[in-house]
Design a protein around this nucleic acid. Structure first.
Length: 330
DNA sequence: AAGACACTCAACCGCCTAGGC
DNA sequence: TGCCTAGGCGGTTGAGTGTCT
C-alpha cells in the first residue's frame, strides 16, 4: 500500500514553471509570506501546482539572493571538505555557501566537481606511473611510515545509500578525496606551508590559537594528516565537536578506537591504482610534489567554517608529537 | 546539415523526521 | 503512545542545450 500523495496529481501542473507562475508565487510570498503552509499556498494564489513544487521553486530559484553557477575555487574546496566530513548532506553543505541551494550544490557536485576530481586522479596516476618508470630501482614511489602507522579509517554510514559499491559511489568518492588529501584544483604552484611554525615544533604539547585550532581541526577533518605527513596531525579531543549539529569528531575519519595501530587502507578504489602506495607527499628534500594536495590552506584563508564549534567553545588542542606520522621518500 | 551523444540543471519522487493531536 | 501530516531532504529523471562526428 502506497503512501497518500500530498496533492491530487491529476489536477496539478508539472514541469517547468512559466514566468507568470513565478511572478504569482513571488508576489504572493513577498506580500503575505508562505503562511507556514506550503500545501495550501498554491490554492490561495490560484496556482495549479503542488505545494511541494511551490516550496522547491521558491527555495531554489525565486528566493532573494540566490546565486546560480560560477562556483569559485574556494567554494569547490568547501564542498569537498565538507563532503569528506559529512557525506552527501547537501543542505548542510549549502548552508556554508551563502546564496547556494542544496539542489545547486548537489547538481554541481554530480555534474562537475566529481568529474574534476576523477580527472585529476587519473592524471596523477599517470604521473606516478611515469615517475615510477624513471625511478625504477630507487623505489621513489615508496613511502615509509615511521613512528606510528596511520589509522584505519572508519567512515560514517552514507544515509539512504542502498547501492552496491561502485566507482561513483559517495563512499568511494569520499575515499578518493581523502586519498587525494584535499584540494584538487589545478593550482600546481600552491605550495603549502606547514601549519605550525618551526619554533613551535620543539614544544611537544602546546596550546595554539583558536584560529590555528580552527584551521587544524579542519585539516584533521579533511584527513590531511592521514595522507599528507607534512601536516602535523592533531590529536582530536575526545569530546564531540559540532558543525551544524554534526559531530565531526565521530562522523569523520578517526583512528579506530582511537588507536593508530593499523596502516591506512583505502578500500573500494584499489582498481584506480596499480600500486597500493599511500600518496607520497614529500620529497627527500622536504618539498612537496604535485601529488600532495592541500585544500586546507585555502580553507584557512577563508576563515571557514564560521560556525564550527566544539560543544563548549573552542579552547585548546594539544599537539601530540608521539602521534605524529612522518613520511619519507627514499 | 543533421543525427548521435554528452552535459546541465530544474523539477519530481519518495522516504524520513518532527511536531501536533 | 501512536497516528497523521507537512516540511525537509537526497536521489533520480528528463527536457533543453551544447558538442562532436
Amino acid at each position: 500500500m502506497g503512501r497518500a500523495p500530498c496533492c491530487d496529481k491529476a489536477k496539478v501542473k508539472k514541469g517547468p514553471w512559466s514566468p507568470e507562475e513565478d511572478a504569482s508565487l513571488k508576489s504572493y510570498i513577498h506580500q503575505n509570506g508562505t503562511g507556514g503552509n506550503w500545501i495550501t499556498l498554491p490554492q490561495k494564489i490560484g496556482l495549479k501546482r503542488c505545494g511541494k513544487s511551490c516550496r522547491l521553486r521558491w527555495l531554489n530559484y525565486l528566493r532573494p539572493n540566490i546565486k546560480h553557477g560560477g562556483f569559485s575555487e574556494e567554494e569547490d574546496n568547501i564542498i569537498c571538505s565538507l563532503y569528506i566530513s559529512i557525506g552527501s548532506r547537501w543542505s548542510i553543505i549549502a548552508a556554508q555557501l551563502p546564496g547556494r541551494t542544496d539542489n545547486d550544490v548537489k547538481n554541481y557536485w554530480n555534474t562537475r566537481l566529481k568529474k574534476k576530481l576523477l580527472g585529476k586522479q587519473r592524471r596523477e596516476k599517470q604521473e606516478r606511473r611515469n615517475s615510477s618508470a624513471s625511478a625504477n630501482n630507487k623505489n621513489y614511489n615508496n613511502i615509509l611510515i615511521t613512528q606510528n602507522p596511520l589509522p584505519q579509517m572508519v567512515l560514517p554510514p552514507i544515509p539512504y545509500s542502498n547501492q552496491e559499491p561502485r566507482f561513483n559511489d559517495h563512499s568511494s568518492i569520499r575515499k578518493l578525496l581523502i586519498k587525494l588529501g584535499g584540494k584538487f584544483s589545478n593550482l600546481q604552484n600552491d605550495v603549502t606551508k606547514p601549519l605550525i611554525h618551526e619554533e613551535e615544533e620543539e614544544d611537544p604539547i602546546k596550546e595554539i590559537s583558536n584560529s590555528d585550532i580552527h584551521q587544524q581541526m579542519f585539516y584533521t577533518q579533511s584527513n590531511i594528516d592521514l595522507v599528507c605527513p607534512n601536516f602535523y596531525p592533531l590529536h582530536l579531543p575526545n569530546e564531540p565537536h559540532f558543525m551544524n549539529g554534526v559531530d565531526i569528531t565521530t562522523s569523520t575519519l578517526q583512528g579506530q578506537n582511537g588507536n593508530y595501530e593499523n596502516p591506512l587502507k583505502l578500500q573500494g578504489l584499489e582498481f584506480l591504482y596499480e600500486d597500493d602506495h599511500i600518496l607520497n607527499c614529500t620529497t627527500s628534500n622536504g618539498t612537496y610534489n604535485n601529488n600532495c594536495i592541500d585544500w586546507g590552506h585555502e580553507m584557512n584563508s577563508l576563515g571557514f567554517p564560521s560556525n564550527y564549534n566544539n560543544s563548549e567553545g573552542v579552547e585548546e588542542v594539544a599537539i601530540d608529537h608521539d602521534k605524529m606520522t612522518t613520511g619519507y621518500i627514499y
